[in-house]
Amino acid sequence: MFSQTYCQPHKGILWVLVFFMASLPLLGNAHETEWPGQKLAAIFPEAKKFVQRNAVLTPDKIAAIEKELGAKLRAEDQKPIFYIPISEKKKPMGLVFFADAKGPLGVIEGAVGLDMKGKVVKVAVYEHKESDAIVGDEFLKQFVGMGIDNAFKVGEDVEAADGHEAASNAVALIPKKTLVMSYTLFLKRKPKPDVAKVPMPEAPEEEMPEAEDLKTLMALMIDDYFVVVDYFDEKESKEKAIAAAKRLAKYAKGISNFEPPKNADQTEEYRYLQDTFSENLLKFAESLEKEGISDETREQWDTIVTLVNQAHLRFSEEEIDLDTY
Rank of each mutant, 00 (worst) to 15 (best):
I43Y: 05
I43R: 04
I43K: 03
I43S: 06
I43V: 15
F44G: 01
F44D: 00
F44H: 01
P45F: 06
P45I: 02
P45K: 03
E46I: 02
E46G: 00
A47H: 01
A47R: 02
K48W: 04
K48Q: 12
K49F: 03
K49H: 12
K49R: 14
K49W: 07
F50V: 10
F50G: 04
F50C: 04
F50K: 03
F50Q: 04
F50W: 05
V51W: 05
V51T: 10
V51C: 00
R53N: 08
R53F: 06
R53S: 12
N54R: 12
A55V: 06
V56Q: 09
V56T: 08
V56D: 02
L57C: 05
P59D: 06
P59L: 03
D60F: 02
D60Q: 15
K61N: 02
K61W: 00
K61A: 00
I62T: 13
A63K: 13
A63E: 14
A63V: 02
A63Q: 15
I65N: 09
I65R: 03
I65D: 12
K67R: 14
K67C: 03
K67W: 01
E68T: 13
E68H: 08
E68L: 10
L69P: 13
L69H: 13
G70D: 14
G70Q: 08
A71D: 15
A71W: 09
A71N: 10
K72N: 09
L73F: 10
L73S: 07
L73G: 04
R74F: 14
A75Y: 14
A75D: 11
E76Y: 06
D77R: 13
D77A: 14
Q78S: 07
Q78Y: 03
Q78A: 02
K79M: 08
I81D: 12
I81G: 11
I81Q: 09
F82Q: 10
Y83K: 02
Y83M: 09
Y83E: 05
I84K: 03
I84E: 05
P85N: 08
P85G: 05
P85K: 01
I86T: 04
I86P: 00
I86H: 00
